[in-house]
């Protein structure tokens, strides 16, 4: 049987490096926000009772925030990656 990717992927090595770097930075940011959430729950669960806004306590507010932040960061990541992919694609087209 043949091996290798299902569809041949043709991406410039610098493009891959750039996207990886952006991904790692965003991942680190989200990991920090998530870790703080887990730590507050673990160390001081009572602190999650504190009213924050709109009638929501910290527990519900932070939980919803983590979910909405995930979507926003995903969109930001896609926007950055799409922009750089277009740039590389244009440079490739110009080179031809």
């Amino acid at each position: 049987m043949d091996h290798g990717p299902n569809v041949k992927v043709d991406e410039h090595v610098d493009l891959v490096k750039y996207k990886t770097k952006v991904g790692i930075i965003l991942f680190a940011v989200y990991t920090v926000v998530y870790s703080i959430f887990v730590l507050i729950n673990t160390i001081s669960p009572k602190a999650m009772e504190v009213a924050v806004m709109l009638g929501l306590n910290l527990a519900v507010f932070y939980g919803f925030f983590l979910i909405i932040l995930a979507v926003i960061m995903g969109l930001v990541y896609n926007s950055i990656c799409t922009k750089i992919e277009k740039k590389f694609s244009k440079e490739k087209g110009d080179a031809k």
């Binding site: 991904g23 790692i24 965003l26 991942f27 989200y30 983590l66 979910i67 995930a70 995903g74 990541y77």
Partner: peptide, 15 residues
Amino acid sequence: YSIGYLAGWMVAMFV
């Protein structure tokens, strides 16, 4: 569990 399951997707997406 909801938060943990969703946060896991950030590893999938970014990495």
